[in-house]
Amino acid sequence: MRASVIISTYNSPLWLEKVLWGYSIQTVSDFEVIIADDGSTQDTKMMIEAISEKTQLSITHVWHKDEGFQKTMILNKAILASKTDYCIFTDGDCIPRMDFVETHLSHRSLGCFLSGGYFKLPISISKKISKNDILNQDCFDLKWLKKNGLGSSIKNLKLAKNDLILFAFNMLTPTKPSWNGHNSSTWKKDIISANGFNNDMKYGGEDREFGERLINAGMKARQIRFYAICVHLEHKRGYVNKDVLDKNKDIRLKTKIEKQTKTPNGIQEV
């Protein structure tokens, strides 16, 4: 195994199943899947057991009791359960293109983390995508997407298949590379050195704060948003809370001002 794909999820078995079908047909197979489950019900566990029997995926289901949004804590537990030296992070609502894992592996380098993005789909198309649409890779085909209701947008170029265009986009994009929880990767030893994710942070900037500590430690962020492709399935976000967002902003500000490289409440504290 060359990599551990860590997928965060919470009570979204239908979306997670689509994501796992995407990982079942990757162009490389020497990776494990760690499900970082923030307290889902038995429905998610049953789905994982079923798809494990239907695919060759090596899946480990890491779960803890539902006590509110604790994504950072379950990610830390998943990292500890991983068995390789390289971790790819994504979410249970992001279906990977078949070259997703290979792209992360081919671009990885010491002293660096990779920063990817996603192609956001409307809820109507998210619901329409079937197992066969994933296995056939139709859900990454612009003609298929437009046929099923995707509107015209400059952002559609993210799914272009011209290597020269994609290279140019990665070099010219004004978006700075940052740690994005839906599509980023780095070495496990560097994650451990940063003490993983900050358990004090709930939703809103918790992924970015982790990446900011990596940069404070001297790591470089490399842009692969037009190489490592995944499509994002739309869903509701009932966990957004203004007070939590404000607290997270204060934590990030402290990380920046004090140039912190480790969190005091992270992977060693779970």
Results as ranks from 00 to 15, higher is better:
62 V>T: 07
208 R>S: 14
119 F>Y: 14
61 H>N: 10
8 S>R: 13
201 M>N: 03
102 E>S: 13
207 D>N: 12
45 K>C: 02
49 E>M: 11
107 H>N: 12
266 G>V: 01
74 I>E: 04
212 E>F: 13
167 F>K: 14
87 C>R: 14
50 A>L: 05
232 H>C: 05
195 N>I: 00
170 N>Y: 10
239 Y>W: 15
199 N>M: 09
112 C>Q: 15
168 A>G: 05
27 T>Y: 00
201 M>T: 02
16 L>H: 05
30 D>W: 07
31 F>M: 04
108 R>T: 03
261 T>M: 14
70 Q>H: 10
145 L>A: 05
8 S>T: 08
84 T>Y: 10
12 S>M: 00
118 Y>V: 10
52 S>C: 09
189 K>T: 10
182 H>N: 12
85 D>Y: 04
266 G>N: 07
51 I>C: 00
130 S>K: 08
157 L>C: 09
167 F>Y: 13
213 R>S: 03
96 P>D: 04
61 H>C: 09
20 L>T: 01
73 M>D: 07
53 E>R: 11
173 T>F: 06
146 K>Y: 04
38 D>S: 10
210 F>T: 02
185 S>C: 09
33 V>F: 11
195 N>H: 11
129 I>A: 07
116 G>F: 02
21 W>G: 04
217 A>Q: 10
81 A>Q: 05
193 S>W: 00
31 F>L: 10
110 L>M: 09
104 H>S: 00
51 I>N: 09
112 C>L: 08
12 S>V: 00
117 G>D: 12
216 N>Y: 11
95 I>N: 14
18 K>S: 02
187 W>F: 14
150 L>M: 11
139 C>P: 03
138 D>I: 05
21 W>A: 11
134 I>E: 06
73 M>L: 14
49 E>K: 13
225 R>A: 14
141 D>I: 04
195 N>F: 10
176 K>E: 10
230 C>P: 06
43 D>G: 11
112 C>D: 04
246 D>S: 14
13 P>T: 02
107 H>C: 13
173 T>P: 05
134 I>N: 09
248 N>T: 03
180 N>G: 12
158 K>W: 08
198 N>R: 09
122 P>Y: 12
199 N>K: 08
72 T>D: 13
225 R>H: 11
29 S>E: 01
76 N>E: 04
181 G>R: 07
145 L>P: 01
154 I>K: 14
154 I>T: 00
19 V>E: 13
100 F>S: 05
222 R>Y: 15
170 N>P: 02
86 Y>S: 06
67 E>G: 15
242 K>F: 13
198 N>G: 04
164 L>P: 01
157 L>D: 06
3 A>V: 03
90 T>H: 15
16 L>Y: 06
125 I>Y: 02
133 D>P: 05
47 M>G: 09
195 N>V: 02
217 A>Y: 06
209 E>S: 14
149 G>N: 04
106 S>L: 07
250 D>F: 15
270 V>M: 11
146 K>L: 01
65 K>W: 06
14 L>C: 00
229 I>S: 15
214 L>K: 07
31 F>C: 06
93 D>I: 03
9 T>H: 00
191 I>M: 15
188 K>L: 12
108 R>W: 04
264 P>Q: 13
205 G>I: 01
162 N>R: 11
61 H>R: 13
209 E>G: 05
226 F>G: 06
190 D>V: 01
78 A>D: 03
217 A>D: 06
61 H>D: 07
75 L>H: 15
126 S>I: 02
177 P>R: 14
203 Y>N: 13
85 D>G: 08
172 L>E: 09
187 W>H: 12
